[in-house]
Design a protein around this nucleic acid. Structure first.
Lengths: 199, 199, 199, 199
DNA sequence: AGCTAAACGAGACGGTACGTCATGTCTTCTC
DNA sequence: GAGAAGACATGACGTACCGTCTCGTTTAGCT
């Protein structure tokens, strides 16, 4: 028995306009300058329409995040068969994006949004598009015997992502070399034992 | 506030009152509810006195952070000579604090403050009191040969801290076991190679 | 030639519900708190149904007024043959109603509605139920020779009503004696000439 | 012991700007289109400044009224020694103003404001500038013996003013003759008795 | 009896204004 | 001359209604 309701239905156009405007403003101004009124103005939408469908500023961000509107690219981890070079290549891509204009600001805005709003926090890691692909690659490495069978794949991904976030919070302008050393440490364990991580 | 003074000297009492009020409010309400007016009210201080000496809300937080007012305890890493048990013990302490009331909220507030304000971001990692002690312990491990000579000590610390932060952002209520698996992975490399991380 | 139309006709139930709800809310909350949405909610009616049949909030009020829903009683002027005692008795009735709970507020609400909406203004004086009956009594007085043949009956009524309204606007809590003095002045001209309005 | 207070003092410029803007908007748009935000915008003033010093829209109007900003002219009653001609002349002046552009609207706006706000209501009659001057003239008439010693002067004034208001509420476009007949009735009692109010 | 179009309840929509709160600057008075 | 108190212009908050506009449902009168 279908539960029917009368009346007009949610406007897809309004929803789209809100998410598009939010994405635009988020990239242009960052999270803390993002306001409901600003979104409404930019989207050509009444404030009440936003409040009707989203509980907070963070909830709008979370929707944008869930639809992949906040990241310009997907960070795919290549799979050449050799774990460390693949990860290093992926890391270079990530760092290149982050060091481009507003990349660090984008991360900080996301973190601020996640800190403020549970919904954003909940979808942050998986939707970041980072861990998903990374985890897939690591699972493959486990199957290939390059990582032990019970390596904590998710946690390894989170530790790398966490280090990336901390770097963004500290506004460090290093070359990315410290992060590269971290992944080498993580994925070249035999080298670690031999003490020849670096030549 | 302070009693009779002749010279135009910065009032130590006012400074103290501001920092104390900020600490109190930060713990009670979190970063996003923290306002300059609220601090001034709570401290019994004029708004202008705050603006005179601090450039922003974040700068006040950064001062509190720098003076160790925001953390109830210092997280010292014990040194029994055995790296992994020491780290696991330390991690248990950290997790216990975070899972206590408002512990997660405290981390999220700090992260939000760091995301918003460069000054907070800059002092976050070292002042967190976490990495300093952790790095010292890891250096000792290097000297003892438990870690390779060129292990990226700071980055390892940041990766752990980053994972802790991500856990707080995701509001996860796990037992902390995932984090424990991560440190085991990080500090038991030989086990990893043998595939017997867990029995 | 009848222009025929299909479909249902205006719902008497909806009309009744709207007018009843309006009357209820008008008495409970006054004119300025009266809203179309509130009426629709109270009447269990769609907003559009109101907009379809009435042009404005004032038009609904005007309808209520025209059907005598806004006044709890009719103010009949008795006719004992003696003009002044009749008028004074009527005035006492009016004042008693006005000084009862919300009586003044009712007048003010009506005046506000009349000020805002021409339709209400147009029907205010005649529909008030005041002047109609008063004018009838004054005409009788003219026939009886108690008033000159061309006394401005309508204007006399309006002047009394106007004085009543001004009293309500000023929120005066006098006993009503000033109004009584006015009607004595109006209807005891010979006394006036003799200077013995009051003994 | 004087109870002293620190801090800046109320800005005379802001007060003046608010009252001037209110007066302007009131005349241009009437009371119901008058909004706090509109006043603030027009005055170049923050909304909060208005809310700090006035409790409501009506309170601002009441201040304007009290300073005579809402009426373009003072309605002085001439004093030639002969009551009726003086009053008729005054009435002509009043009617001329009311029938000019927006005169009726002005009255209706004032009445609406008075109905909504006690402060406006309280100062309406005296500040209207109407009754004050009228009462003075009537008192003179009493002294001259043209009115009985205990004629209810204030009430007579209110009855005239009330009739004027009712006329404005009804949007009547009569020539003003009915009002003239009323004052003739009020102030030519002997004529009334002889039934020769009009020849 | 079926068809059809209007009226209905519900309520989403782009707006305006509300009254409150915080911002960062400025002014006044006290110590 | 630093500091408390707080007024100021600005602007966002979240709420309430405005008047218009869909939605599906219900119902009256014509075929």
């Amino acid at each position: 028995m279908n539960q029917h309701r009368n009346g007009p239905v949610r406007s897809a156009a309004a929803r789209e306009a809100v998410l598009a405007a939010t994405t635009r403003l988020f990239h242009e101004q960052g999270y803390d300058k993002l306001t409901i009124e600003g979104i409404a103005r930019e989207a050509g939408v009444g404030k009440q329409t936003i409040y009707r469908w989203w509980s907070s500023r963070g909830a709008v961000i979370a929707d944008c995040l869930a639809e992949g509107r906040l990241f310009p690219v997907e960070f795919e981890v290549p799979d050449s068969g050799q774990l460390l070079p693949d990860i290093e290549h992926w890391l270079s891509t990530v760092l290149a994006v982050l060091d481009a204009r507003n990349g660090g600001e984008l991360v900080r805005s996301l973190v601020a949004a996640a800190a403020e709003d549970p919904a954003v926090g909940a979808s942050l890691s998986e939707r970041l598009g980072v861990e998903r692909s990374l985890a897939a690659r690591l699972e493959r490495a486990v199957r290939d015997g390059q990582l032990p069978a019970n390596a904590p794949i998710d946690q390894i991904g989170e530790s790398i992502l966490g280090a990336v976030i901390l770097r963004a919070l500290g506004r460090q302008n290093d070359s990315g070399e410290p992060l590269r050393r971290l992944v080498r440490f993580l994925f070249a364990p035999s080298a670690r034992l031999r003490g020849d991580l670096e030549e």
